[in-house]
Amino acid sequence: MRRAIEVEGLGHRGQPIPVASLHRGILASGGIAGIDRKSGELTPDRNEQVRLVFENVRAVLTAAGATVDDVVKMTFFVTDRALRDAVNAEWTAMFPDPGSRPARHTLTQQLPPGMAVQCELLAVPGAAPRAEES
């Protein structure tokens, strides 16, 4: 059975769409923005939006019973390729082992006003051995 994944402060601004969906062991997200979940606002600081995207990714994974070890692919949508350096900094912090990083694709995209970055993820909760198991 498919299960909608909701995270307080994330969503699609009143649309009937969950932030992610878990079905048969596969977690797929919609767009995860760099929104401050407490205020519901996008900061004009693009680097802070990138940081918040990664923070929000962790919140989505947690809500689905997954961890960063379960991520198999992330797709980033940026309004400016110059954001790639900020994404890379957060990426290497989240996935420090170069031998154990998920696939990734970064695309330049027009996003809603004020939004500089957004990502989607694909994960398989429980498929990867946890750090304490390896």
Rank of each mutant, 00 (worst) to 15 (best):
G126P: 06
T43N: 13
T67H: 03
T79R: 12
R84E: 15
N47W: 03
L111D: 05
E55S: 10
G14M: 08
R130S: 14
F76L: 05
E120H: 09
Q110P: 03
A93W: 01
L111W: 03
P18Y: 00
L122M: 10
A28I: 00
P44E: 13
A28W: 04
H12W: 01
A59N: 09
R58Y: 04
P96N: 09
P125D: 03
E6C: 11
G9S: 05
L111F: 08
D97N: 08
P18W: 04
V68M: 11
A86V: 07
L27S: 00
V68I: 10
T106C: 08
D85L: 12
G14R: 08
G14K: 14
R51A: 08
G25A: 12
E90G: 11
A131K: 14
I17W: 13
R24P: 05
K73V: 10
T67L: 08
N88H: 06
D45T: 03
N47V: 00
V7E: 11
I17N: 00
G114S: 12
T92V: 10
R46A: 12
P18I: 00
G114Q: 06
A89T: 01
A128Y: 13
G25F: 02
A20D: 00
P102F: 14
I35Y: 01
D45Q: 07
E8Q: 02
Q49E: 00
P112D: 14
M74H: 10
Q109W: 07
A28R: 06
S29I: 05
K38M: 04
I5F: 13
N56W: 06
V68D: 09
T79S: 06
V117F: 03
G126L: 01
A4D: 07
E90C: 01
P129W: 11
T62Q: 01
V60I: 05
E41H: 11
A64P: 01
F54W: 02
T79P: 09
I35R: 14
G65P: 02
M1G: 15
P125Q: 02
D36Q: 12
V60G: 09
A28H: 00
